[in-house]
Amino acid sequence: MSTEQEAGVRDWDFARGVASVVLMVGYGREHGVPVGRMLQGSGLTEKVLADPDAQIDAHTELAVIRNLVRELGGRPNLGLDVGRRYRITTFGIFGFACVSSPTLGEAIAFALRYLELSFTFCIPAARWRPGEFVARIHDERVPADVRRFLVERDVTAMHQMLCDLVGHRIELLRAEFDFSPPTDMDPWVEIYGMRPLFEQPHNLFTLDPAVLEKPLPQANEHTWAMCLAQCRDLVSRRRARTGIAAEVRERLVPRGGVDGFAAPPGIDTVARDLNMSTRTLRRHLDTAGTSYRQLLDEVRRALAEEMLTATPLSVSDVAIRLGYAEASTFIHAFKRWTGTTPSAYRRGAH
């Protein structure tokens, strides 16, 4: 029997901090690329990069990535070299939450749920099965001109983060990539502890699942709970949307807040309210990097968390108010969103 977990986002087009850009600009400078050329066309300045609280969109980081690849793309294993520089400290509160997680497995589950607090462009999906943990790395939506660089960078950064969490190098059981093999294989073997396969159908790596059950050296239940709360707050603030997504989201939130006893409108109703066809609305949302289902899940999750922590409503009553026909369906959805059940979430909050 296998267990699967998808990431909390389906695409790389999410807001992010500047730490990743700072790292790449520093790498470029070390290899003779002036800051001005690294930031060309991004709209960024050194003043913005000096602000640890600055937020940018993914396309801004992508512009810097393209500059790096243009300037240094001739270097062998460029993505590998850059990726190994991403450490737990690069990820701020997101990394700190992972460090304080009880086990490596729980840190991975958390990281997938809050992936939009990372800097990745490749979207991982995890599968636990007897004798093996498989991380499938989706790069289908990554622009082709920087795809190889980003697969190399992101997979190596993920592996480096895992190593930082346990305090030593983790050797992979398997690593497979869908591009041609590098001319120099030695750095790959040095980093991953094995020889990867290339020109494979998918990008993936596997671990011994026994590693996932071991307690992390800096696990701390109180710190973890505090970090989780901060990460939830950060995600909520970053998800402040504009344009068509904001208009749809507004129509999904009950006018009476948590007291508004009304199932959310379907996509056809929302489309009519916005004076467009359902097909056109779907297309606009896809262009904005989201979907009706994703926005509905965001609204339902926010309302569910509020009702579970701020009202005495039963789980069944919460399910009904969110438009679910059965409590079991709501419980399954809530566990997909948060990794825990509504009842456990309420106990933890209290």
Rank of each mutant, 00 (worst) to 15 (best):
Q200P: 02
H284W: 00
A107K: 15
C163T: 07
N220Y: 03
P187E: 00
A19K: 01
M24E: 10
V21M: 03
H168R: 15
V99T: 01
R148S: 02
G79H: 08
V142H: 02
G131P: 01
D184V: 11
L39H: 02
F133S: 10
C227G: 10
R29E: 13
A157N: 05
S180G: 09
L281G: 02
G83P: 07
A144C: 04
A271E: 00
L173C: 07
E132W: 01
C122E: 13
E247V: 03
G26A: 03
A63V: 10
V21P: 01
L296K: 12
I170D: 12
Y292K: 13
M161I: 09
R85V: 07
I93V: 14
S42L: 02
P102T: 00
K335Q: 11
T329L: 04
G8I: 04
T269N: 02
V22C: 04
R255I: 13
A109H: 04
H202F: 02
T89K: 11
L165R: 07
A15G: 12
L44C: 03
Y192T: 07
I56H: 11
P34V: 03
R10N: 05
F205W: 05
T280W: 00
L295W: 10
I108P: 04
Y114W: 12
E221R: 15
V22K: 04
Q294D: 14
V155M: 14
G92Q: 13
R153P: 01
G26H: 11
M38E: 07
I65V: 15
C122T: 15
Y292I: 11
F261G: 11
R153H: 04
E46S: 13
